[in-house]
Nucleic acid binder design. Sequence first.
RNA 1: GGCGUGGUGCCCAAGUGGCCUAAGGGAGUGGUCUGCAAAACCAUUAUUCACCGGUUCGAAUCCGGUCCACGCCUCCA
Length: 468
Amino acid sequence: MSVRLYNTIKRAKEEFIPIDDKKVGLYTCGPTVYNYAHIGNLRSFVFEDILKRTLKFLGYKVTQVMNLTDIDDKTIRDSIAANIPLRDYTQKYKDAFFEDLDKLRFDKAEVFPAATDHIKEMIELIKTLVDKGYAYQSEDGSIYYSIAKFSAYGKLARIDMKNQRSGVRIKTDEYEKDSVADFALWKAWTEGDGDNFWESPWGKGRPGWHIECSAMSMKYLGKTFDIHTGGVDNMFPHHEDEIAQSEAANGVKFVNYWMHCEYLIVEGQKMSKSLGNFFTLRDLEEKGYNCNAIRWVLISAHYRRTLNFTLEACKQAQETLKNFTSFFIRLKEIADSDKKGDDISATVNSHMEKFSEAMSDDLNISEALAAVFGLQKETNKLIASNILGQNAAATVLDAFKKFDSVLAVFEFEQKGNDIPEEITKLVEERQTARKNKDFATSDIIRDRLKDLGWSVEDTPKGPRISKI
RNA sequence: GGCGUGGUGCCCAAGUGGCCUAAGGGAGUGGUCUGCAAAACCAUUAUUCACCGGUUCGAAUCCGGUCCACGCCUCCA
């Protein structure tokens, strides 16, 4: 089956053909670790996770590199303001970031290179650019990339520099550049940087932001690699600058497929702190939303469409996932029984095929989810008419585990499998009450259990207890 | 000013020339099951795809215009 991906630089979907057969090199612009990631950051990371998982699902072996920007204006500014050494300051947010990745069930990148561990590589790359005449030193010692020297500049974002507004935003410190649009490769040390600097052939200073992605992607994935992803806002200037740096230095194509994730808005409005709709994962957890539901919301819209993130959607997602969990419990009960039934592998296969085809078509998640829901519905019908047997149930469960290797939102095992004694006791009491047809008491106990966070469903085989 | 995206039911969201009298989910309503619930099952909720005009045998899908929302144009995911 051929995989089709939307390649931003072509503005079209095209067949995905990796450089090396079934191996894929994937570079992802990671976070700047100066604060907690917000839900918008997380959306694009989740998109990249879905991309990676989909490729693996389709049989590719993926090497993903996600950089951590732990040196830039913001990290320096905030660490100095907090009076904490940069390294300690960024470590805190690196840790927080990895916590988020775990909570959202990421298939983590193979390499998470930190910028500060690759200063040497960046200096080498800058040297090459200076030697080749693409970069120059300004009066203050900083090194700038001269975009006028790279004729293809603007090919990704389709920006013609001649048409751009100019003059309005020139700040005094930019007068040292040959052209306003030139960007810094190496920033000469200033007092405001404190003791955050490295020695270089151009004196002490620190790297610019764009050079880190060029240097690190090259180191781990080679001069040309398959896929580069990021948020749409990174397209210009960041990705455009990466192309300029990498292609000028190496003389070969930088990236074959560019993929960009759209923005996220919250409750129909742009996310901002002043509107009070600025959420981190922590904020949402405090409000009582679980991470699977949040992940569900983030993956449930196509990555190239603006996603309207709402708390209502989180609630709905929780509802959906709860139904799936109870579906899995029922399936498991049948799978563990010795019930005979019809063979349904044809149904399972056709839904699996639909899912696979949908995801292969530029990650058409909506169609893929329709296939998932379709199999659930078909299976439920068989359960309702009592013809789903043990083997079939096991087959269906396997199929959902396969779906989940891409989606990573389902719970197959009951969390906290061990039900507290207190709960078991209450359930027993309730059973006794029910036997005695004392339904008033039975209902009171059920409410009580609900308050304690457990739900009881009465089935022919007895009560089914599950965590809410 | 330049470049670009989108407006589909109560909400979310696929579909981009005929299989669309528009997939799927959530929510609602009626029914089956249940002591009652929950879950599940059955039925039901857009002759219509922002608006106006055009192309076509045929348009949610193509073209033109209008309105609305949004993004990028130097470090913001």
